[in-house]
Design a binder for these strands. Structure first.
Length: 377
RNA sequence: GAGCCUGUAGUUCAAUCGGCGGAGCGCCACACUGUGGAUGUGGAUGUUGUGGGUUCGAUCCCCAUCAGGCUCC
């Protein structure tokens, strides 16, 4: 169980297969995020139709509602949400960092207030693992502390705590059918990242995550960090870059040896009316699409692009129809999954260097909005 | 037929004594990376119903007119 086979390598980019109790993951893989045991606006059938393989869900949210014991009693997360393919749960560390205004971190754990009702709760590494065992995902995460990349002094404290918590998470684990990944931290300091990579790599885990990126640092800092970290990680374990990302970030990540990605961006942007397109990120609410008969992306094979015009999608958005979020989510997720699929093929065909450069050119505009073309002005 | 009330941004409404016509919503656009369907940021509105008059100056006062509403006969 949890065997990772590398099928092909192109320089640092890898194509592989990671075996889980709910099926094999073909890497590189992009995981849609289903925080509350649902990828917002989509059914499992939609996810299958876009060829999603791994879905991420969240310890913090499911612990608060409906409760991890309830999920366990309902047969576990896979059965509860009817996703019978690989799943991953985040440890809740990031939410404590990002969601709770009033939190207190100490060496033992974190005391925080629920964003739902203000009630007080406490997470420790042991508690996080217990919750994740109740949820029952195939891949679970060590409880970590994600620090502000701009707070250089604090990065060391958070990293050292993350290391101690990783060991405690590992000791707390009781189920053998879940893969526990440790998480590399260290902010944007290369020396700390080096130290953290070596430490996390020394633990007996079937995979390794890189956290603390795409949280406000620059692109250069992200690339430098990956350049420092991935060469220090064992070849035979999958590397998971948490919370990334944009099409550009994914291409750059694969080039630096990353195997697993997850990100809320495609589904969040979908609900906020943005669509990934080769010419850049399109705000589908823009008035310029009111009479546009084209699909979002002429080259996309998703249901939305095969079926609907930009004009119709804009109408749904302006009218605040819920279907808009569904159709844009289908497209945005399919765009990223199609991207990692083509990267995988290029690695297998040993054409990654040229293909990734081509894709990077194609997708580089997608970090921000598409430039307006003359005919749309 | 008579009397009264109301006409200001797309909309609902402000605007001191006659002294630079604003706000909410909407609209237009931007941001969003281990998700609060959230939120934040920026922008554009205008023949003050219309035509006259008084005044240095009128959304404001006067006259006429148009539209809507109410009341009475």
């Amino acid at each position: 169980m949890f065997e990772f086979q590398i099928t092909a390598k192109n320089n640092r980019a890898r194509a592989g297969v990671f075996s889980t109790p709910h099926g094999d993951l073909l890497t590189p893989v992009f995981a849609p995020v289903g925080t509350q045991a649902t990828v917002k606006t989509l059914t499992p059938e939609h996810l299958k139709s876009i060829n999603a393989s791994l879905v991420l869900s969240n310890t913090y949210h499911l612990y608060l509602r409906p409760g991890d014991e309830l999920v366990r009693d309902m047969g576990g997360l896979h059965k509860f949400m009817q996703w019978h393919n690989p799943m991953l749960t985040d440890s809740g560390g990031y939410q404590v960092f990002s969601l709770s205004n009033t939190r207190k971190i100490d060496d033992d754990g974190v005391t925080f207030k629920s964003h739902i009702d203000g009630s007080t709760h406490r997470f420790t590494p042991e508690k996080s693992i217990q919750i994740q065992e109740n949820l029952g995902a195939d891949i679970i995460m060590a409880f970590d502390e994600c620090s502000d990349p701009n707070d250089a002094a604090y990065s060391k404290i958070a990293m050292e705590r993350t290391h101690r918590w990783a060991e405690r998470s590992l000791r707390a684990k009781t189920r053998s059918d879940q893969a526990l990944f440790g998480i590399v931290q260290g902010g944007v300091n290369p020396r700390l990242r080096e130290e953290s990579a070596k430490f996390i790599a020394s633990l007996n885990t079937p995979g390794i995550a890189i956290g603390g990126l795409s949280v406000g640092e620059t692109k250069d800092e992200m690339h430098t960090t990956l350049d420092v970290v991935t060469p220090l990680l064992p070849e035979n374990k999958p590397r998971y870059l948490m919370g990334v990302g944009t099409p550009e970030d994914i291409i750059n990540g694969v080039a630096r040896g990353i195997d697993i990605f997850d990100c809320v961006l495609p589904t969040r942007l979908a609900r906020h009316h943005s669509a990934f397109a080769p010419e850049g990120r399109l705000n589908m609410m823009n008035a310029s699409f009111a009479r546009d008969e084209r699909p979002i992306d002429e080259t996309c094979d998703c249901y939305t692009c095969q079926t609907f015009t930009r004009a119709y999608l804009r109408h749904l958005i302006v009218a605040k129809e819920l279907l808009a979020g569904t159709l844009l989510s289908i497209h945005n997720l399919r765009a990223l999954i199609r991207l990692v699929e083509s990267l995988r093929v290029s690695i297998l065909e040993h054409t990654f260097e040229s293909k990734s450069a081509e894709l990077l050119t194609q997708w580089k505009n997608n970090a921000s909005r598409a430039p307006m073309i003359e005919s749309e002005k």
